[in-house]
Design a protein around this nucleic acid. Structure first.
Lengths: 235, 235
DNA sequence: AAGCTTTTTCACAGAATTTTCACATTTCAT
DNA sequence: ATGAAATGTGAAAATTCTGTGAAAAAGCTT
């Protein structure tokens, strides 16, 4: 039996919400609805939808913020996101795409276009992740460290590491290129995007924190004096 | 079929002119001759030689002026230029190198040295612009020396060199243009940026340190008396 | 808005590196 | 050969870098 794919619709206008929902369900997708950015983040974190349709104009948190959080704080790089926008103002759309949205649908759009986009993106997402691994999850393995990006969980020597969002992001970045030395600025860019305003030293604190939580494995995060940090690959 | 490379020889002494021409043509290079700076500029502008051998002592316009014009007025940063000097005036050689000459040959020089330098420089020039992604961009290989920028590791004869950040930086700079002579000031700029306030002599100490760590390979870092240092390319 | 968590900044100590300095040694031109 | 100039070198001095604990700031939840 085929697993039903779930689409999260983030949209504050009820009419459009209904419209989208109708067409997607007709095609056999499960849908979830929400009207604000904070709800959206909540749902994404807890229910793991397979795709997100994201309106950029939202109350409270803007769509851009949602995107940023999903991509950089949670490292859910694989979650397909389609931006839906009524904006004549293209800036947001461009920002959105640069932040890693997978596609963009201008309003108004025809149901056919909508469904076609959703289908295409889901197909691509499923093939790209399944080629990576025998198993379905998107995980990183380095020695005794295991990181599951989709579930947002990390394990060292089999036991779970209780990491904050940025600690997780940091460890993921380092461990996904073992042996590579990252400068503090590269780490900041990798975690938060290019123009995130923090002192380089803040990275040191995060590093210390992850090391401590990794216990004996903490020394796998190497300090490269005068340069930055790296995750050890060779024993 | 291999494209014949053209070398412009700027030299006012006819004997030396002939000598150089003879050896270069024997190696299969096309040559152009001229005896003054203004002629040189003319030819460079109109005929686009692949490399220039530039005597610094010239009538009318000095070699330094030619260099300046080529580098800064025409922006021909890629054109390889080798300074040929009778060595009475070290100052000029240093000025020349800092103005962006790619190398310098003290007179008198052996034909072998001449040809080797021309070859090396042409090879470097052709690979640096056209073949960017043949190999890993951040791997440098020179003889038994291997430098991995990404991992920030260096190996000599297979065993790792434990280098400090600036030693690594220094070795990388020299080894990424084997055979090229760097003045101490160029090294400082290359390592730390343009306005880094240190004595030139501090470079000597770093050099000594890298040499020591390279053990038997230490003598691959050549002292070019009165000018600076270079990493040996030809065995 | 209050209370909790996470993230960033700050300041200081300890380490490691980098530079300077003084003197020995080498090189080059005469 | 000889002397001036340039480089080699060991050790001291100065600087820079990292680890940390704690405070401040920023985010989130209720």
């Amino acid at each position: 039996m085929i697993q039903e794919k779930t689409v999260l619709i983030v949209e504050d206008e009820p009419d459009i919400q209904e419209l989208i929902r109708y067409h997607l369900e007709k095609e056999g997708y499960a849908t979830m609805l929400c009207a604000s950015g904070s709800e959206a983040l909540n749902i994404i974190e807890k229910q793991h939808p397979d795709l997100v349709l994201l309106d950029l104009m939202l109350p409270e948190i803007s769509g851009i913020e949602v995107l940023k959080k999903v991509r950089f704080m949670w490292n859910l790089k694989e979650l397909p996101i389609i931006i839906v926008s009524a904006r004549t103002d293209e800036t947001d759309v461009i920002t959105g795409l640069e932040l890693g949205a997978d596609n963009y649908l201008p309003k108004p759009f025809s149901p056919k276009v909508l469904v076609a986009n959703v289908k295409a993106l889901l197909r691509r997402a499923s093939t790209s992740s399944s080629t990576k691994n025998t198993h379905d999850d998107n995980l990183t393995l380095v020695g005794d460290l295991k990181i599951d990006q989709t579930r947002h969980e990390a394990f060292y020597e089999g036991s779970a590491l209780v990491l904050t969002a940025s600690e997780f992001s940091l460890l993921t970045l380092l461990a996904s290129s073992p042996g590579r030395v990252f400068t503090r600025n590269q780490i900041i860019s990798g975690m938060r995007g290019d123009d995130y305003p923090v002192t380089e030293r803040s990275i040191d604190v995060q590093i210390a924190s992850v090391r401590k939580k990794m216990g004996s494995g903490g020394n796998l995060i190497k300090t490269v004096w005068g340069i930055g940090y790296s995750y050890q690959d060779k024993p």
